[in-house]
Amino acid sequence: MASTTETKQKKMLILKSADNDEFEIEESVGVQSETIKNLVEDGFTFVPLPNVYTKALIKIIDYLKKHANKTDSNDEEIKTFDKDFVNTTFDDLFELVSAANYLHISCLMNMLCQTIADRIKDKSPEAVRKIFHINCDYTPEEEAKIRKANAQAFEGQFDESLD
């Protein structure tokens, strides 16, 4: 009898974050990450993730759980979840994008990169620098030279807002 209950039990994985927190998740949830999938295929059930910190990992596990339960009827629920998911600080976004990249979760990667891209799009270099705290290390002459070389791209109107 013991064997039948065992087979019915869901296979579990333990993920260990860079700050040594451990999380137990279902294998079917975890394998949405290519990195985890490869390890599972090699027989691992304990997965250390030296590049993923607890804060990001908790959010990513949330994401994976939500997307693992995708059915025909909760499409919109997932869309709302995704929208809330990326509505966060840049610090979180960059932490998440590095983590998602390490874990190879392509749909999450696309969503995060698109969120960041949308903040750069249509903006002037000055606005982008302010939004992302980018320090301009060009001399004024160098910058003028670059703008001249790529002149076509600098034509037209930019969005100067920092939204």
Binding site: F94, V97, S98, N101, M109, N110, C113, Q114, I116, A117, I120, K121, D122, K123, S124, P125, V128, R129, F132, I134, N135, C136, D137, Y138, E143, I146, R147, N150, Q152, A153, F154, F158
Partner: peptide
């Protein structure tokens, strides 16, 4: 700017090509 090239390129590839040239003036 601390993100690796591959990630920055992935972000840039989601924009119209015109816009990616503008980023050359950032730093």
């Amino acid at each position: 700017s601390q993100l690796p090239d591959c990630l920055l390129l992935q972000i840039l590839s989601l924009m119209p090509t015109d816009e990616t040239l503008v980023t050359s003036a950032l730093s």
